[in-house]
């Protein structure tokens, strides 16, 4: 039994999501990611089950573990009560802890995700916040969102929201004392150190490539150089 497998066993999601796999392929049949990407959750579970550290290391360095959409459809169906989706979450966590995620295109995307989502939580108390959800980078939200963005205060007032104001209500201003609580939660639970690590890893890579922070963000957010797709 290898060191990486031992590390995986420390993750509660792994303990909850991994029993024993009979390679039936049911998870792969139901998986939305398996249809779109070169992705096979059955193979992931089987690799982990082998407890072969070399194979697990390859997996942790690959794009493969980043293809899952965490829909958890597989969890309902597995006859052995495995949850490939939870196993993937444990693999991703370990991949970040080991720094292996920097070796894959999809893994490096954690830089923008971490910056945007954790930044939004700490600044506003929300994962998604209308003033930072821009039509320019979300054209699929359509011209109606463009109009909402241009008239945000009026539109949200019409929709009975309490945008950036005190007191309860939709998209209210979350009081400073509560944001301070959340910051301290990040500090004591490993959220802050995770953010710092991902930021440092990203900036180091940006430096290697001779890119500014913005250029690097743009690159990881939009780059698709590898053929990830299941044609």
């Amino acid at each position: 039994m290898g060191k990486l497998y031992e590390r995986l066993k420390l993750d509660y999601r792994f303990r909850e999501g991994f029993n024993s796999c009979i390679n039936c392929g049911t998870c792969t049949a139901i998986c939305p990611a398996a249809e779109f990407y070169k992705y096979d959750p059955r193979l992931i579970v089987n690799t982990v089950q082998s407890q072969d550290d070399d194979e697990i290391e390859k997996l942790l360095k690959s794009d493969t573990i980043w293809y899952c959409g965490e829909c958890m459809s597989c969890m309902t169906r597995c006859p052995r009560k495995n949850a490939p989706g939870l196993i993937v979450m444990a693999l991703r966590n370990l991949s970040i802890e080991m720094g292996y995620y920097m070796e894959s295109e999809k893994g490096r995307q954690q830089y923008v995700l971490t910056k945007d989502l954790c930044g939004s939580i700490l600044k506003y108390g929300y994962c998604v916040y209308p003033r930072t959800f821009k039509y320019e980078t979300h054209k699929e939200a359509g011209k109606v969102w463009k109009w909402e963005e241009e008239h945000l205060d009026d539109v949200y007032e019409r929709l009975h929201a309490n945008l950036d104001k005190n007191g309860p209500g939709a998209i209210r201003k979350i009081p400073k004392e509560d944001l301070d609580d959340v910051k301290r939660i990040f500090d004591v639970s490993g959220g802050t150190s995770r953010m710092q690590q991902v930021e440092e890893d990203g900036l180091e890579k940006a430096g290697e490539l001779g890119l500014t922070e913005e250029e690097y963000s743009e690159k990881v957010n939009t780059e698709c150089k590898i053929d990830h797709f299941n044609h």
Binding site: I96, Q110, L117, I121, G125, V128, R172, D178, F186, G191
Partner: peptide, 20 residues
Amino acid sequence: EHHTTCGGIAYHCDTIPQET
């Protein structure tokens, strides 16, 4: 007004540890 996000999207984008 004191409640916040549950952090679910950040969690399922694997940007915060489970403990957070």
